[in-house]
């Protein structure tokens, strides 16, 4: 039996909204460590890995590990019916084919419940290796979203290069070319505006902009996003889910044959 009560139910809405356009259906794996989701987009170019730890929940009981297959569009429909400040409780039986969501308003004057049908989903589980990244950039998530949006209007592909001078995003298209350089800024008055660059070795990688832009749908989750890069390996784009877990996107690079 599963019972999980999340006081910040709005967090769940933000996670699902961030991934539902990339992945149509996914297994949500529930165990004593919490909720985990790993899924590839339909083109198998990017991978989503989410972990919401059990200690994020006010109450968490999971007697037996289970995998709940869901249509993320349907899950988003259900969560859309929750208020942003609602407390969300999930309940499921070990061998059931449904999961129940209960939404409670903060003032406890409105309670609703929705039963969502589960589905069997065959999914490959990928092993994500531990990586020593050459460059790690932590920047305001809004800035990352803006760069992706701006460059998408010029080109389809971006080269992200990290050097001691900063991190440069370059694209080109029919219109011409565009460069945006982000430099370290640890002296900004507001912590939300700070950018931290940890460079071990210079690195440059090429990516499809439309995936990087899609990842930016997670912007409401966190003030900052972290981009981690190593030569000829997927970039990791990570949004922290407060101190409750993380939402990570991995994107395979484009490489010269």
């Amino acid at each position: 039996m599963l019972e999980a009560r999340l006081v910040q139910g709005g967090m769940l809405k933000k996670v699902v909204d961030a991934v539902k356009d990339l992945v149509t259906e996914a297994n949500i794996d529930v165990s004593s460590s919490g909720f985990q989701l790993q899924a590839m987009d339909t083109s198998h170019v990017s991978l989503i890995a989410m972990h919401l730890r059990s200690d994020a929940f006010e109450h968490f009981r999971c007697d037996r590990a289970m995998s709940m297959g869901m249509s993320l569009a349907n899950l988003a429909k259900v969560l859309k019916c929750a208020g942003n400040d609602d407390i969300v409780t999930l309940k499921a039986n070990d061998d059931g084919d449904t999961v129940t969501f209960m939404f409670e308003s903060p003032k406890e004057d409105r309670v609703s419940d929705f039963e969502l049908k589960l589905m069997d989903i065959d999914s490959e589980h990928l092993g994500i290796p531990d990586t020593d990244y050459c460059a790690t950039v932590t920047m305001p998530s809004g800035e990352y979203a803006r760069i992706c949006k701006d460059l998408s209007s010029i080109g389809d592909t971006v080269v992200i290069s990290a050097t001691k001078d900063g991190v440069k995003f370059t694209t080109s298209g029919d219109v011409g070319t565009a460069n945006v350089t982000v430099r370290q800024n640890t002296t900004a008055d507001k912590k939300e505006d700070q950018t931290i660059i940890d460079l071990k070795e210079p690195v440059a990688l090429t990516f499809a902009l439309r995936y990087l832009t899609s990842f930016a749908k997670a912007t409401p989750l966190a003030t900052h996003v972290t981009l981690s890069m190593t030569r000829e390996l997927p970039v990791m784009v990570e949004y922290a889910i407060q101190d409750m877990g993380f939402l990570r996107f991995y994107l395979a690079p484009k490489i010269e044959d």
């Binding site: 170019v45 991978l47 990928l126 092993g127 997927p234 991995y250 395979a252």
Partner: peptide, 14 residues
């Protein structure tokens, strides 16, 4: 033009 790689080329199935 650089070619798009699949994520499965980097992360093996476990």
């Amino acid at each position: 033009k650089p070619g798009q790689r699949s994520i499965t080329a980097f992360f093996g199935t476990s």
